[in-house]
Design a protein around this nucleic acid. Structure first.
Lengths: 349, 349
DNA sequence: TTGAAAGCGCTAACAG
DNA sequence: CTGTTAGCGCTTTCAA
C-alpha cells in the first residue's frame, strides 16, 4: 500500500518551467481560453500533456480568490434520513453541477444554533447563493446573506426575507384528506372525522396542512374534533407518545388518520403494532410524504409525494435568472398514481 | 423583502481602518491567537465589536491559500436515498465538525465517471483526506490523492491502495443466514436452503456475504442451490426481475430469503406483493441492512444493521492519528435486539 | 503569439 | 504591545 507522505503540490509555475513557457500561458490553456489569447495549438498541446503527466489540479482557493465569482452554491438541510431531504440534496447537487456550479451541503440536525453557524461558515466560503431548507429561522439566515453579499432562498419552509419555494401544503392536504375520507367511507360505509398526527403546529407547513384538513372535512359537512389534532413534533417518538396519551384518555380513536410526514408515520405504525389498539383491522391512513417501504405497508396508505424535482426547478429558475419573479412559489405535490393538474402558483407577499 | 444587490465584502483592511489599527492585528484577534501576540484586550474587544457590527466573515479562500493546511475533508458517496448512506454522511459531518474540520460531501449516483470527476474537484479544493464510500474504483481515487498530496481512505467497500473500513460481511452474513434458517425451521418445521437476492457478485462485500451464506448452510449440512444465488445488482427493479425470471422458470422458490440490502428488499417486497407468488404466507426474510419501515413490514424480517458509528470511529481514528494502524478494518454489524460481541478486527494485507 | 507584473484577502515573520 | 511586509497560487490586464 502506498504510504507516501503528502508531496508538495504542482503549481502552474512548475508546469511553466517544464513547458518552458510562462505561468500565464499555462493558466490560459488550462482554462480553455487560449483561443482568445491566440496561443499556438502546439504550445497548448504541450502544456495539456505535461499537466496530465504531472497530475496537476488547480488550487481552487487561489483561483477563487482571484476571480470575481466563486460559483459555489450552498445548501443547509435539517436531516439526511428520509427520502424527501435525501432526494432534495441529490437533485440539488446534480442540477448545480449541470450548470458548472459547485454545491456544498451541510446538515444541521434540526439544531437552530448549528443552523446559523453553518450558514456563516458557508458564507465564508463565498457561496453565491445559500438555500435554507426546512430552516427554523430562515430570515436570520437571509440577513446574514445580505450582509455578506450573497443571495438566499428558502426551500420547504417559507421565510419573509427571501423568495420561498414550498409545497402547496393547503391544496395537498385538502386533496389528501378528501381521499382518506373517501377510502374510509368505502371501507366502513360512512365517512368519519379523521385524526391529524405529526408536525409542529407553529410551522407554516403544518398550519397550512391543518387548514386543508379542516377545509376538506368542512366541505363534506363533517366536524373536526380539535382534540384529534396531534401536532406534537416530528420525531417518531412524539407521534407514538401522543397517540398513546389519546388512547389512554379513553377517547375512542378515529379509524382514519392524516399523518404529517414519514418520520411521524414511523411512530404511528410502531404504535399501532405495539399497542394492538386496532387489533386486526388497521386504520385508513394517509401520509403527507412518501417512502417506498411505507408504501408497501398496508393497502390503504394513501401517500402524497412532494414534487422535489418541481421545487428544485423553481429554485434553479431563480438562480439562473439571478432574481426571483415572486416571493412565494407553491408547488403542487404529486398524488401517487394520479395525474398532476396545476402548474406552480406564484404569489407576491 | 430585501432585494439588495450583493454589496462589496468587508475585509480585514476595512475593519483595521474602522478600528484605527492594522490588518495583522485584526487577523490575529479574529483568529484567537492574540494572546501570543499580546494584543491589549481593549483593542481585541474593539476589533471584535466592530467585526460583529459589520457582519464580517473571513474569506476562506484567502485564508486557506495562505495557511499550510486546509482542514477540509472530503467524502464521496454513491447515493443519499437509504438509511445506511444517509447516516454515514450525517455522522461523518458531525464528527468532522467536532474536530474543527470542514466536511464536503458529494454524491456520485453510482456513476464511475462522476466518481473520479468528483474526486478531482474535491482535490482541487485542497481536501486533506478523501473518503471514498462504496466506490466502484477506489484505487483510482487513491492514486489521484497520492499525486495531489492528499490522504485517502475507503469506506464500505475496500481498496488496495488505502486503509479500508468495512463491515464484517462474512461474519454478519454467516450469523444472519443462521438466524434465517433457524426462523424458517421454527416456522416450517425443517430448515430449507435459502435464496440469496441482490448486490453485485463482483463486489467484495457481496462476495463475502455469499461466502458467509454458504458457510452457514454448510455448517448445518444443508446444500446451497447455485441457481438460487441472485446477485444481479442493487436496484429494486433488478431484484424484482430476477425473482420473476426464477419463478417463471418453474423452479419452485425457497420459502426463506437472504436479501442483500434494503434497496434490493424494496424490489423483493414489491415482487412478493405484486406476483402473489407466496399467497397468504410470506416467506421468512433476512436483510443485510436496516430500515425503520422495512422493520415493520412483517414479523419475520430479521435485519442486520451495519455499525455506522463504529465504522466512522475507525475512520476518524485514522484521521486523528494521521496514519492507519492496519490496512483493513472490519466492523461487526449489529443484530437488532442482540448483544454485540466482538471488537473490530484489524488485518494487514 | 507571448511574458511580466499586479493584486485578490489573508497570515506570519520580523522589526520596531 | 503593534505595524510593515512578503508572499500563498492564480487570473488578467498591459506591453512587447
Amino acid at each position: 500500500m502506498n504510504q507516501d507522505k503528502p508531496a508538495k503540490k504542482t503549481t502552474i509555475y512548475d508546469l511553466a518551467t517544464l513547458a518552458q513557457t510562462s505561468a500565464s500561458a499555462v493558466s490560459a490553456v488550462l482554462n480553455g481560453n487560449w483561443k482568445k489569447r491566440r496561443i499556438s495549438s502546439a504550445l497548448a498541446e504541450k502544456i495539456t500533456q505535461i499537466a496530465k503527466e504531472q497530475g496537476y489540479a488547480v488550487n481552487m482557493q487561489a483561483s477563487l480568490l482571484r476571480r470575481e465569482k466563486s460559483h459555489i452554491v450552498g445548501m443547509i438541510v435539517p436531516k439526511y434520513d428520509n427520502r424527501y431531504f435525501g432526494s432534495i440534496v441529490e437533485t440539488f447537487e446534480t442540477m448545480a453541477r449541470e450548470r458548472g456550479l459547485f454545491p456544498i451541503i451541510t446538515c444541521t440536525r434540526r439544531d437552530p444554533a448549528l443552523e446559523i453557524e453553518a450558514a456563516q461558515t458557508l458564507l465564508s466560503y463565498q457561496v453565491e447563493w445559500l438555500i435554507s431548507t426546512g430552516a427554523t429561522d430562515p430570515d436570520r439566515i437571509s440577513d446574514l446573506c445580505n450582509q455578506a453579499g450573497a443571495r438566499s432562498l428558502n426551500l420547504d419552509l417559507p421565510g419573509s426575507k427571501a423568495p420561498s419555494i414550498i409545497s402547496d401544503n393547503f391544496g395537498g392536504a385538502y386533496e389528501l384528506t378528501r381521499r382518506i375520507l373517501a377510502n374510509s367511507k368505502r371501507k366502513l360505509g360512512s365517512a368519519q372525522p379523521l385524526l391529524f398526527v405529526g408536525g409542529r403546529g407553529s410551522d407554516h407547513n403544518t398550519a397550512e396542512r391543518i387548514r386543508g384538513f379542516r377545509a376538506a372535512h368542512h366541505d363534506i359537512g363533517i366536524p373536526v374534533n380539535d382534540a384529534h389534532i396531534l401536532a406534537s413534533g416530528y420525531a417518531p417518538e412524539k407521534a407514538e407518545k401522543s397517540l398513546q396519551a389519546l388512547a389512554a384518555s379513553g377517547d375512542p380513536l378515529p379509524v382514519g388518520m392524516f399523518v404529517n410526514s414519514t418520520i411521524s408515520l414511523e411512530g404511528v405504525m410502531r404504535w399501532i403494532k405495539r399497542s394492538g389498539y386496532y387489533e386486526d383491522r388497521t386504520p385508513v391512513i394517509g401520509c403527507f410524504d412518501w417512502d417506498p417501504f411505507a408504501a408497501l405497508l398496508g393497502d390503504e396508505i394513501e401517500m402524497v409525494r412532494q414534487d422535489v424535482q418541481g421545487m428544485l426547478d423553481a429554485v434553479f429558475n431563480i438562480i439562473d435568472e439571478g432574481a426571483a419573479t415572486g416571493s412565494l412559489v407553491e408547488i403542487p405535490p404529486i398524488f401517487m398514481g394520479a395525474e398532476i393538474s396545476a402548474s406552480p402558483v406564484v404569489k407576491s407577499i
